[in-house]
Design a protein around this nucleic acid. Sequence first.
DNA 1: ATCTTACTGTTAATCTATAACATTCGCAAA
DNA 2: TTTGCGAATGTTATAGATTAACAGTAAGAT
Lengths: 148, 148
Amino acid sequence: MSCKHHHNCEKAAKLTAEQLCETYGFRFTESRKQVFEALISSHKALTAKELMVQIGNNQPPITYRALEFLTEAGLVHFISSINAYIACAHAEDEGHISQFLICKECHEVEEFQAPDAVCLLMQSAKNGNFQVSDTSIEMLGVCSECQN
Amino acid sequence: MSCKHHHNCEKAAKLTAEQLCETYGFRFTESRKQVFEALISSHKALTAKELMVQIGNNQPPITYRALEFLTEAGLVHFISSINAYIACAHAEDEGHISQFLICKECHEVEEFQAPDAVCLLMQSAKNGNFQVSDTSIEMLGVCSECQN
DNA sequence: ATCTTACTGTTAATCTATAACATTCGCAAA
DNA sequence: TTTGCGAATGTTATAGATTAACAGTAAGAT
């Protein structure tokens, strides 16, 4: 696990979330809070269904709306290769592009940044005169803990 | 469109596909051929459903099995951010890691390679002692044709 | 000839996500 | 203070994507 001070990053993330919402005039409502806290208290990526189980809500629209909101706010990332969501580890860094290491065994996800690589990719896109709006970099494999 | 000699790359791809199958003792069966040809004759990524419409088959398992086979054989790539499949432009280069530029407007997909970027990403993973088995790099945006 | 493995056919279920519409909440302007 | 508006919720139902399970067939090996 990349974050050795889980309680700290949890608190910090919650603060950031509230601040962000306030800044942009949106509300950090109960359902959003529930979804966000479920995610932030897990370093694993959770599917929408897993989330619904965890927060005891089996009305999909509520969860999906919260996820959409949080994702657009940059507080949560959707990892399309496994259809799962994870709380963002760099929410304070708005508009950043994230990379993910996703363990097939324990489903833990580590968010990291490789700006040089992203820069190269952007350059390729630019060379092809392609205007990028959204970048998804996901690496599936086995984490160090699960390699024994 | 990146390939200006569509008929050529189509033929070449088909040959490669048959050869690959033969080499590994698998059969390039009718359903697989149908799915593959539908994909290779389109530079756009197609969803499973679009494929089923195109090949006139509404029995999902048949199409999904063909897609699974082709994907594992490296003849087709699954683009998870849009849930769609595309014929591989570099099938002869086994085990390669591909990057995709996906146009939101026309849905055309360009497969390209940025080995330096991939190398940097791999390095990051290695630093975290993470064993990568599968890499997905997808950039969503607007292609040059659709920017006017 | 039969054994085995790959492959197909079919039905149904499960998982994932959204549509549609009525209702409520928080806040600001009349 | 009420009226009006946009944001957010509650609810039911549906649509869309993918796989499970099992029976059957085809092709090559021994």
